[in-house]
């Protein structure tokens, strides 16, 4: 059973690596942030699998803390760094924002 858990953890880690492409690509800030949020969920899954595979129950608490605090970064993002009052200031920014709908 342990090797199944490890294999699944490896698989999930690979999907996380693939998701990094979205962090680089954007185009809007929200896309990058969403990718990070998705990594959080994947990390919770990987940690739960590792807790079982490595027989280390403390890792479940790590997953619990990740799950508990997952919302804070996005709240900070929408309440601070991504506010509508500040209009995009340069042409590429405006293009990226509009293209968010059509890319």
């Amino acid at each position: 059973m342990s090797s199944l858990y490890l294999a699944l953890a490896l698989f999930l880690l690979l999907t996380l690596v693939a998701g990094l492409w979205r962090v680089g690509r954007g185009p809007t800030a929200a896309d990058r942030m969403l990718a990070a949020q998705l990594f959080g969920t994947t990390a919770v899954a990987i940690l739960l699998l590792l807790a079982e595979a490595m027989d280390s129950p403390g890792l479940r608490d790590v997953a619990l803390v990740f799950a508990l605090l997952a919302a804070i970064t996005v709240v900070a993002f929408t309440r601070r760094a991504w506010q509508p009052e500040r209009l995009p200031t340069s042409e590429p920014e405006r293009l990226a924002e509009r293209a968010g709908g059509a890319a």
């Binding site: 969403l34 949020q37 959080g40 969920t41 919770v44 739960l48 479940r60 997953a63 619990l64 799950a67 508990l68 997952a70 919302a71 996005v74 709240v75």
Partner: peptide, 13 residues
């Protein structure tokens, strides 16, 4: 609990 917390967090996000 972990699952419910992740559900809450991503719904809010």
């Amino acid at each position: 609990l972990i699952w419910l917390l992740v559900l809450t967090a991503s719904a809010a996000a």
